[in-house]
């Protein structure tokens, strides 16, 4: 059996690590600074799985009961 990935779990939404350019773009469209985003810890199991480092931004595609899909961002700390 291949190793279980946390991303396969029904409760875990998709996490995508953004590149620096993408992160810049996101902050610009949202009009906020990095620190104003919600956080995710670098030792969060899913953050570890995608190899996120503090200071980077993670894009999260949530399955939302109201909007179908909603996109959220979290700053890795």
């Amino acid at each position: 059996m291949s190793k279980f990935k946390l991303h396969d779990h029904i409760l875990v939404p998709k996490h995508i690590l953004l590149s620096d350019e993408e992160a810049e773009e996101v902050l610009k469209t949202l009009g906020v600074s990095k620190e104003q985003l919600p956080k995710i810890r670098a030792d969060d199991p899913v953050a570890k799985e995608i190899g996120a480092k503090p200071g980077q931004i993670v894009k999260i595609i949530r399955e939302s009961p109201t909007a179908g899909k909603s996109i959220a961002y979290r700053l890795v700390i």
Partner: peptide, 9 residues
């Protein structure tokens, strides 16, 4: 075990 986003759900 599954992280902050799973906890939110």
């Amino acid at each position: 075990v599954l992280g902050i986003e799973a906890a939110r759900n």
